[in-house]
Computed example of a mutant assay.
Amino acid sequence: MVLDPTDISVSTVAQVIQLAVAPVFLLAGIGAFLNVCAGRLSRIVDRARNIEPLLLASRGAEHARRLQEIRTLDRRMGMVSWAIFFSVLAAVMICIVVILLFAATLTGAHSGTAVALLFIGTMASIGLGFSVFLLETRVGSRAVRIRTEILEHMEEQRDADGGG
């Protein structure tokens, strides 16, 4: 049964809007997460750009260390990009859920199964995005540890200065 759009009451539209509010809040959360990811990606890219000329000018152990750092940065860029991809995919699916909710009201179509499956897909996609982001933060935190030779040098310097 197809409903005439002029026959739909304001209360019916209000009910559909109430149903659509939760997915719209989810969109706001995904947007905030995307903002975090974009900021993180920007900082990683900036760091990689700073390392590139230093890598080209370095030799020996310093070159190997900078090469390892740039490889780690490249890996992290890829991981953040995947987190962004899964998050945007989740946002697109949420938009489709909201569209289906309104379209089903207007047309009288039975789209409950499609809405449920899309919402499950949304949760899976955002879960994957969060998981990849978690892995990237772990890789990033391991990459920024202070090297032992720096720590030992600091200790040697403190001993030489007679401090404790």
Rank of each mutant, 00 (worst) to 15 (best):
residue 90 A to N: 07
residue 102 F to N: 10
residue 84 I to Y: 03
residue 44 I to N: 03
residue 131 S to K: 14
residue 54 L to R: 03
residue 97 V to M: 02
residue 105 T to Y: 14
residue 138 R to I: 03
residue 41 L to F: 13
residue 82 W to C: 05
residue 48 A to M: 10
residue 86 F to I: 04
residue 96 I to M: 08
residue 72 T to C: 04
residue 70 I to T: 05
residue 141 S to K: 03
residue 122 T to N: 00
residue 34 L to Q: 02
residue 73 L to G: 09
residue 88 V to F: 06
residue 88 V to N: 07
residue 133 F to C: 02
residue 57 A to N: 01
residue 110 H to C: 12
residue 80 V to Y: 07
residue 34 L to I: 07
residue 48 A to F: 10
residue 71 R to M: 07
residue 95 C to P: 06
residue 58 S to G: 05
residue 40 R to Q: 11
residue 107 T to N: 14
residue 35 N to P: 03
residue 113 T to L: 12
residue 34 L to E: 09
residue 115 V to R: 05
residue 46 D to K: 12
residue 91 A to Y: 05
residue 150 I to T: 10
residue 130 F to Y: 11
residue 37 C to Y: 06
residue 70 I to M: 06
residue 98 V to N: 02
residue 82 W to Q: 05
residue 48 A to K: 09
residue 109 A to F: 08
residue 153 H to C: 10
residue 102 F to Y: 13
residue 33 F to E: 06
residue 55 L to S: 07
residue 93 M to T: 06
residue 139 V to D: 06
residue 138 R to H: 04
residue 93 M to P: 08
residue 84 I to M: 11
residue 114 A to E: 08
residue 40 R to L: 11
residue 82 W to G: 09
residue 92 V to S: 03
residue 93 M to F: 01
residue 41 L to D: 03
residue 66 R to V: 06
residue 100 L to E: 10
residue 99 I to S: 13
residue 42 S to H: 13
residue 72 T to I: 08
residue 104 A to F: 15
residue 96 I to D: 08
residue 36 V to E: 13
residue 39 G to V: 09
residue 123 M to T: 09
residue 112 G to N: 12
residue 49 R to E: 14
residue 85 F to W: 00
residue 134 L to A: 13
residue 92 V to Q: 01
residue 74 D to S: 11
residue 104 A to M: 15
residue 55 L to F: 10
residue 137 T to P: 05
residue 51 I to Y: 00
residue 95 C to F: 07
residue 39 G to W: 14
residue 101 L to Y: 11
residue 137 T to F: 02
residue 120 I to Y: 14
residue 58 S to R: 00
residue 132 V to G: 00
residue 132 V to N: 06
residue 48 A to V: 03
residue 145 R to Q: 15
residue 41 L to C: 05
residue 108 G to R: 09
residue 60 G to H: 09
residue 148 T to S: 13
residue 93 M to N: 07
residue 38 A to S: 01
residue 80 V to H: 01
residue 142 R to I: 09
residue 98 V to D: 07
residue 130 F to S: 03
residue 57 A to C: 01
residue 83 A to Q: 02
residue 39 G to E: 05
residue 103 A to C: 14
residue 60 G to D: 02
residue 33 F to K: 12
residue 35 N to W: 14
residue 43 R to S: 11
residue 95 C to N: 13
residue 71 R to Y: 07
residue 98 V to G: 05
residue 147 R to P: 10
residue 121 G to E: 08
residue 57 A to G: 03
residue 136 E to P: 12
residue 36 V to G: 08
residue 140 G to Q: 01
residue 49 R to S: 15
residue 42 S to E: 14
residue 42 S to V: 15
residue 124 A to S: 10
residue 59 R to K: 15
residue 34 L to W: 10
residue 70 I to E: 05
residue 105 T to V: 15
residue 32 A to S: 11
residue 142 R to H: 12
residue 78 G to K: 08
residue 39 G to D: 02
residue 107 T to G: 13
residue 64 A to L: 02
residue 132 V to C: 01
residue 121 G to M: 00
residue 146 I to R: 06
residue 37 C to M: 04
residue 145 R to S: 14
residue 75 R to H: 14
residue 59 R to Q: 15
residue 74 D to F: 14
residue 126 I to D: 08
residue 43 R to T: 12
residue 36 V to N: 09
residue 57 A to Q: 01
residue 38 A to R: 08
residue 114 A to P: 02
residue 64 A to W: 04
residue 89 L to D: 00
residue 45 V to K: 12
residue 66 R to P: 05
residue 133 F to N: 07
residue 83 A to N: 07
residue 56 L to T: 14
residue 72 T to A: 04
residue 68 Q to I: 11
residue 153 H to G: 15
residue 54 L to C: 02
residue 100 L to C: 15
residue 138 R to K: 07
